[in-house]
Amino acid sequence: MKIANTSEFLSAEEIAEIEREFEIYPTRRAAGLEALRIVQKHRGWVSDEALQALAAFLQVDTAELESLATYYQLIFRRPVGKAVVYCCNSASCWLMGSRDLQRQLQTRLQVRPGQTTDDGKITLLETPCLGDCDQAPVIMVGTAGGTYEMHRRLTTEKLEELVNDLQKVYGGSSDEP
């Protein structure tokens, strides 16, 4: 699909934010990574159409931007849910039982890491160390609104509570009928 008009696709807010980045970076191309992040902040993820519109706006080839988008793990090229659950699985959390928590999450949400619940509300991701190792095991929940919340020293019970809360707020399938 070809985007006829970039400024029609990108919102005025997105364009304004990207243009602010142009002041910091010497070329439009150099602001590409920031621009991807901005678009994702507004849309939750970077769709093919958004990528093309952005490439046109930055005057680079779509493939150049795709090269960045597919390199960085926090740029999402597939839609994510309203809530993204980042499950830390690095050394300290692993030692403190993050595998069981992750399994619990997978069962409760019926998704595997990288997947989104059937209703499109909650996405489960594995994440490298979140830098809260003394509070392990930890999980971070990001929302479409751009807020992030840390959940520390998790246990099966606390996680159960967290999932219930998430499902209340965002929906998401449950293993219960």
Binding site: S92, C129, G131, C133
Partner: peptide, 11 residues
Amino acid sequence: DEMEPGTFKDR
């Protein structure tokens, strides 16, 4: 860019 597994000081 503190990301080393087991590292929690710069934050």
